[in-house]
């Protein structure tokens, strides 16, 4: 089998697995009436969702995914300060876009100052 064929095999097998992960729970759980029943399972997934959102933020702050090197990286401090300031701004303002642009601008300014 040529290298080109092997690359396609990796892509297609990876795509099939990814599609399975995306579709199986959706197909099973869309048949259940969890929203109206306020079930434990729904609350469990609600908690998990917010943990995922926080986790994505945390993973982005630890650039490169290496925790040990990130601890001494000033970009982590800049990122955490930006996250805290954006959060505080969101509590004062309605909507998402203004805090978003303010947060990105703040990150840029802090990066220039610290890095």
């Amino acid at each position: 089998m040529s290298e080109n064929h092997l690359i396609w095999l990796v892509i297609l097998a990876g795509a099939a697995a990814s599609y399975g992960f995306r579709s199986l729970p959706l197909l099973v759980m869309s048949r259940l009436d969890l929203v109206d029943s306020g079930s434990d399972l729904l609350r469990f997934f609600d908690y998990a969702t917010y943990a995922i959102i926080g986790g994505i933020i945390g993973s982005a702050l630890v650039s490169g995914g290496e925790l040990t090197s990130a601890v001494s990286d000033p970009r982590l401090v800049v990122g955490l300060m930006t996250v805290a300031a954006t959060f505080a701004l969101c509590l004062k303002l309605r909507g998402n876009l203004l805090p978003l642009f303010a947060g990105v601008g703040l990150y840029q300014v802090l990066s220039w100052l610290a890095l």
Partner: peptide, 19 residues
Amino acid sequence: QTMTMVLPIYFVTFLARVW
């Protein structure tokens, strides 16, 4: 580097909305 921070900052706004 700045653009890769757009999404995490946006996600912070989601967390703030549950306050």
